[in-house]
Write a protein that binds this DNA or RNA. Structure first.
Lengths: 185, 185
DNA sequence: ACATTTATGTCAGCCATGTTGACATATTCG
DNA sequence: CGAATATGTCAACATGGCTGACATAAATGT
């Protein structure tokens, strides 16, 4: 309650469309938003970064751990598809996560070529710890900015390429359901 | 007007505080927001990435070019301070930007140890092109999400570490003024 | 005036994480 | 059975961070 910050927006009078004598070549660049996005993301990933140092892990490990946590028994190919990296890149970090006991691989039951990935209890704990850090940042940001959670969701969603939105939506709801099933069991 | 998208938020009923029989260890992780932020940022930097390929530049070049564009005659030390990288890292990309005529360095008038950095006309053009791509993404996101620009600004601002906010605010307003002076001249 | 500090540059090497290309293995499928 | 698929692995390379050490020129303090 104490921390309603003075935001840069309060110093602004106009926004967007140039009223001054500029060329009519589209709209004014939104430098403020661009830079805020840059710094916001930097801090957003900064929290987990610090924790991951404990295990000599980097952001790549975080991403793998997070999405494996969110998609228990995910196939390697699907994980690659989410991360949009090559299997060689994945192999390096995945190897370390497996060796240190955060993730385990098991042979697929229906298709034995598959190496299904899932987090161990240790992996779950770390993934949760990192997610909570980021969740708290969002909670603070939402509260302090006077936005609603849904506004933030809609805004970030709309920042994604239109072609990719459907996939992301599907992915998220699917993960939510999978995690829900895990809890019930 | 045609493109009011169906956002993931519309499928949700509750949000945040767990009503189910979970442990009262803080709030539910905001996986949706976390992942949306990840994909939003990926696409946000993706646009410039494609353009930069033309010059064999990467994101590092983009960041340098952008902040030099925004802070004409910036000192090397100040640029390092904004980017939070080492001078050795900066040197590599800066060298290429100078060699290819996007940025020029001039000796400081008052303190001749300084190498003040500024974009050339070519550099300005590229920086503007990239900024416009990102601006369009924001404009779309704001329009389609039914947020206001100020809401977005306040939200992103509040995502930044509290300790860093003042600096960011100061930096942005200062850059705005510098750019304004440049226009008037 | 001279010693110190400051602003910047540079060399060398390391690390993390991405890439491509080629090839191996096991399994499934038509 | 042969082709396609899922995965793993080896080797080499690119990018962009990092540390440490050292060099130079200019400013600054006593």
């Amino acid at each position: 309650m104490a921390d309603i910050n003075v935001s840069p927006a309060q110093r602004r009078t106009t926004s967007g469309t140039a009223a001054a004598g500029a060329e009519p070549t589209g709209r004014d660049p939104a430098y403020e938003l661009i830079e805020l996005m840059f710094f916001a993301y930097r801090d957003f990933v900064g929290d987990p970064d610090h924790v991951l140092e404990r295990y000599q892990f980097g952001r790549a490990h975080h991403r793998v751990l997070h999405f494996v946590f969110r998609h228990p028994e995910i196939r390697v190919a699907d994980l690659l598809d989410i991360l949009k990296i090559t299997k060689q890149s994945l192999a390096r970090v995945l190897k370390e996560l497996v060796e240190q006991g955060f993730i385990l691989q098991k042979e697929g039951q229906v298709d034995r070529r598959q190496r299904l990935l899932a987090v161990t209890e240790k992996g779950r704990a770390l993934a949760l710890e990192l997610a909570k850090l980021q969740t708290e940042r969002f909670a603070r940001a939402i509260a302090q900015s006077g936005t609603t959670r849904d506004q933030a969701v809609r805004f970030l969603y709309a920042m994604i390429d239109p072609e990719g939105r459907e996939d992301v939506t599907r992915m998220i709801t699917q993960a939510d359901r999978a995690l829900q099933r895990g809890k019930e069991r």
